[in-house]
Design a protein around this nucleic acid. Structure first.
Lengths: 307, 307
DNA sequence: CGTTGTCGATACCTTATCGGTAAGGAGCGC
DNA sequence: GCGCTCCTTACCGATAAGGTATCGACAACG
């Protein structure tokens, strides 16, 4: 039994007439007649009663008609679904996010993706997982993409910039510099700088480079591993330092902590990345990356527009 | 897209290896490889990623795999259902019954049919319909078979005996003959006989013939059209007659009416028939007729056994 | 670092199946 | 009874499926 035969069968059953069915199928009548016969022979059941003015369905034919319609419908849907899945419009997208660095951008980005890809289930598998865990999950294919701030590491994994955010100075409200509306890098020359992550992290490297660009090597202390912990340390005056954090973290209100921008002409930003397997061919990834790039372009355009 | 291609696709998807899949399909590898390619080309979507050790499903392939399994399952079920429908094991059987004559046999017969054909829905479309209505329904194909007592009428319709039942004498409890345990036909010579149906009905003809066989022409009065009405007339002593009714009607208890058998050696029976379109080809009818004939044979055997 | 083995793809051939044309046969209506 | 309608059969060419041999790519191994 083949789908073609079912198509022919349904046409004949609906027309109750081989000639008309053949016409509808853009086929001449004898081959149609033979296909129906072969179907009947294969099933071992007569499907039509031949009458002088056409054909009538037998009980078996009536039973098959229902099923044949369902099968053909399902087959058409299957074709469409396969094609849509191939375009990344269908499926489940597992992502990992490091929430403390992405209170703002990632939700907006994923929301936009969901709008343009309504039949893709976006599944946040890892939330607030450390980079190591995210990279492991990526390697083990448990997630398709990870959002965090990464350093180039492995050629198997590709890093792509999602957005870059201005750095803010986070400092205790009682700190003398809190009195200033904006802070110049030079103001930080003799301050104790809390590094949110290690010296070899993306943000850590950025901060040190920034200080070096302004002609000094800051006095640094470990900031606890992530930005939230660093801000908490500033709030509680542990080590009495201050830090530079991504702008989106200003959403994180904490008692006794204030955020101050850097002086306007200071180009000090950190990037937010997405990370994916270089060899990955999934159309879901391609679709997401397209959204990411569009978002990034809109971001750049918006940053340039007001300037 | 054809079912054959889906079969091949599922095999490859399950084996994740063209060679093994080909083996499983009793096919050599190159044709299989080509079929998969043609399927991919037709859908416009890559279904497999070729790796050095086999193949992996793409997202599109994963989507199609689910659907392909469902389609193949449905197709297999469709084949089976068509075959079963062709054997009369599936479908809906619409019947008409004249309930007043069949308080006993028809329910048992239909119950037996339902046991041997559990997936056939037996649908009593006409109940207590007059013969005329039943025959009309049969002609209009609203029912497939009618149960009643018929006279041969139309070559388009075939009558078949379902069972024959002994005749009982139905009489008012105050009637002198009610004192007898059994009644001889000769006892009825001077009685007023109520004819349940017309003189030209099956039962009417039977009664008159029976009397004639015993050497008298009875004095008759119309019994009201059906057996139940006749019994009701006897109960109410309207016209003060008595009647002969089918044995199964003894189930019909009515105040002041008693039933008495005829003397043992009297071979006086009426038949119960089923009626169907002679040209009907429905396997449901064939299946029902087979049950009817088996029932009839068992009936005859049971009647002969004790004798 | 070449060799070997594995795997899917390709080339080429054979065979089966499908669709088209022409003619046949059954049944109904005029 | 003639013609019409409709399905079937017969025959032919085209298309597509399956088989064998071989290729090319890649990984593992010595």
């Amino acid at each position: 039994m083949e789908l073609r035969q079912l198509k022919y069968f349904v046409a004949v059953a609906e027309e109750r007439h081989m000639g008309r069915a053949a016409e509808r199928l853009h086929l001449s009548q004898p081959p149609l007649s033979r296909q129906i016969q072969s179907l009947e022979r294969e099933l071992g059941v007569q499907l039509f009663i031949r009458t002088p003015r056409g054909v009538d369905l037998t009980e078996a034919g009536q039973a098959l008609l229902q099923d044949a319609r369902a099968i053909r419908l399902l087959a058409a849907q299957a074709e469409e679904r396969a094609q849509r899945a191939g375009k990344g419009e269908l499926g489940t997208l597992d992502v990992g996010v490091f929430g403390s660095s992405v209170l703002n951008v990632i939700p907006r980005l994923l929301a936009r993706f969901s709008e343009t890809h309504p039949d893709v289930g976006v599944n946040i598998v890892l939330h607030n997982a450390h980079k190591r865990l995210q990279i492991d999950a990526l390697r083990q294919r448990r997630i398709l993409v990870a959002f965090d701030r990464f350093l180039p590491d492995d050629p198997d994994l590709t890093i792509e910039v999602v957005t870059d955010e201005p750095l803010l100075v986070a400092l205790n409200a009682r700190h003398p510099l809190a009195a200033q509306a904006a802070i110049h890098m030079d103001d930080l020359r003799h301050e104790l700088l809390l590094l949110p992550a290690g010296i070899d992290s993306h943000i850590g490297g950025k901060l040190l480079q920034l200080c070096k660009d302004h002609g000094f090597d800051p006095q640094v202390l470990p900031g606890g591993g992530d930005v939230i912990t660093t801000v908490a340390m500033i709030a509680s005056r542990v080590n009495a330092g201050l830090s530079l954090i991504p702008g989106s973290m200003a959403n994180l209100q904490m008692p006794n902590v204030v955020y101050r921008p850097l002086r306007a002409n200071t180009r000090a930003t950190v990037e937010l990345h997405c990370l994916y397997r270089t060899a990955e061919t999934s159309p879901l990834l391609a679709a997401l990356l397209q959204t990411v790039r569009e978002y990034r372009q809109a971001d750049i355009a918006a940053a340039r527009g007001p300037t």
